[in-house]
Design a protein around this nucleic acid. Structure first.
Lengths: 337, 337
DNA sequence: TTGAAAGCGCTAACAA
DNA sequence: TTGTTAGCGCTTTCAA
């Protein structure tokens, strides 16, 4: 920068003012500086700027895994919204293990950004309660969090209830919740969605059969596929499957096919997330749409509030869900006259 | 840091030495410092460290889109390899437009990292030739690049040839290349893969019909689906489809189904990338596996070479591809006696 | 509208 | 083994 200042015959401050688009620079001076910048191929040192000013122009999104589609679609959506505002998004992977998560979340890391969107499944209430980041932060996701955090979550119970009600209406009676978990030390996605499943069954007068709540470890397509195949081949009777995510539901469709069952004739399937691919697999996957765009808008509004003035009261926002009906479920029984 | 030093009764340097795990610190002193660090909740300022030392402990992967599955799987793979080495991966999206790409690639941005893996589709030879980053950088991808860059690419032509040969062996005669492009200003993924398609057809004595090379803009599932549906419904005769990516092939399978055709009985389909989902869609997608792990290993080796000693001669590595046969293609005709 | 001085928090180099 | 000094490249503050 001092090279530029010298070559342009101005002071460091003038160069800085030009590069930051500040108003108090003469038009002629500005041009001369820009010319020299170009000529010398000068690029600003962001580390120095950050050290001095604190600003970085960068927001971070921290997700458990890059290769879970829900997160990569989320990242793309957020990036597309931030880019026009001049903010840059970087995505980090926390690895879903508490250890890697805590390291990714060291305050040192977080402090590098103007704001952080944190979708951390491995951290529980106490972890989050212990840390006091002074970076604007919004939590995305389903775990229980201390009140002082801003947070956006899906309508998990409602969505799972909607999905299960739909299966019941379409004639399913033995409905499994693949990836669902009836009990867990901390409430999480898998328990909330299992709760919605149980609520819908009870409301329909069908008592939830615990053997139909099939827990998963990784929620991967492959795991879901073999899990449902093994249960069905082991004699489990099923005429409906609620996958706790769309990836799980896609695995379920494959596993049911493996077992010689046809979707939706023998077994109906519903997912949760409404991924972009879901429209295009098999007969089309009926899925709970979590209101992606609204969630992103909420999250960024909450983040911006904190970035602009530190004193906002924390909000907990729950997104509105909606069922998207496709070919993996049949028509409601009432419609079939 | 000076607070810590004062509270522990040592100098700044000793604190720095402890935090960096440098050897020249007495065991007792180290313990005392760590205690105070814990007590005060001190966290190092990475911006300052970066400014002073240049090191960041962070590698960046720049991809066109977060939500193209190939890239998210790539990111996860790279992150999983880097994490045990104590390096952190951040992923940035360049947006596939030249403008956003150039901004994501401003040297200022790149300089923030110890190394950069760049998968940039919008930049051409001349863009890359103009910039002279002094950060270690490895290019991933299919575009033509100046010799001075290290680069890892897929065996595009070979892979597409393998895939097309397989379709021919399995009895297909009217084979479309969906997303393929016979001519383009700069060679790119879509042209290389179309070239492999054409080579295989010619070798089999089938001359490539230009109307069977169906270009796409975004290579999205939805676009691929409607493109193939419209062609087929418009009278295009096809008994095999090579999707230039697995996402395109998944779209193709959906579009063929829309048009009333059955895979693989009426039309056989092959993809390229061997995504994790591809095993689980429809009858299972036959696909070209680009050797993901080997590519990652090559790329990180080349990056590390540059990070360790600046004077390595640039390498251009081409990964070995292999065909993974699944249900979307039939058995080779010769096997069917 | 422009410039000079100070310092952000850390680490390299050297000294004790 | 520990400490001192200087300065990374920028921006804030204040003065001209």
């Amino acid at each position: 920068m001092s090279d530029v200042a010298r070559a342009a015959g101005v002071s460091l401050m003038t160069v800085s003012n030009v590069l930051n688009g500040r108003p108090n620079v003469g038009a002629e001076t500005r041009l001369r500086v820009l010319e020299v910048v170009d000529e010398l191929g000068y690029e600003i040192n962001l580390a120095a700027r950050r050290l001095r000013s604190g600003r970085t122009g960068t927001v971070s999104l921290i997700v458990p895994r890059f290769d879970h589609q829900y997160y990569s679609e989320l990242a793309a959506r957020i990036s597309d919204v931030l880019a026009p505002e001049g903010l840059h998004l970087v995505v980090e992977q926390s690895g879903a293990s508490r250890e890697r998560e805590l390291s990714a979340l060291s305050l040192a890391r977080l402090q590098q950004y103007d704001g952080v969107l944190l979708s951390a499944v491995g951290l529980d209430f106490q972890d989050l309660d212990r840390i006091h980041p002074d970076v604007p932060i919004v939590l995305l996701g389903e775990q229980d969090v201390p009140d002082r955090y801003h947070r956006v979550k899906m309508g998990n119970v409602t969505g799972a209830r909607l999905a299960t009600e739909h299966l019941v209406e379409c004639g399913a009676r033995r409905i499994a919740v693949l990836g669902g978990r009836l009990e867990a030390p901390h409430p999480e996605m898998a328990t909330y969605r299992a709760r919605g499943w149980a609520q819908a069954l009870e409301a329909a007068g069908l008592s939830p059969d615990p053997s139909l709540a099939i827990p998963l470890e990784s929620f991967s397509i492959a795991e879901a596929r073999s899990a449902i195949r093994e249960r069905v081949q082991g004699g489990l009777e099923v005429d409906g499957v609620l996958g706790v995510t769309d990836e799980v539901a896609i695995g379920a469709m494959a596993g049911l096919r493996d077992a010689g069952l046809v979707v939706p004739e023998d077994v109906q399937v519903v997912g949760f997330d409404n991924l972009r691919v879901s429209e295009h697999v098999g007969p089309g996957l009926t899925s709970v749409d979590p209101g992606h765009d609204a969630m992103v808008a909420h999250a960024l509004r909450l983040l911006r509030q904190q970035m602009d003035n530190k004193g906002t009261t924390p909000e907990h926002v729950v997104s509105e869900v909606a069922l998207v009906v496709r070919g993996s479920t049949r028509r409601p029984v009432n419609d079939r006259k």
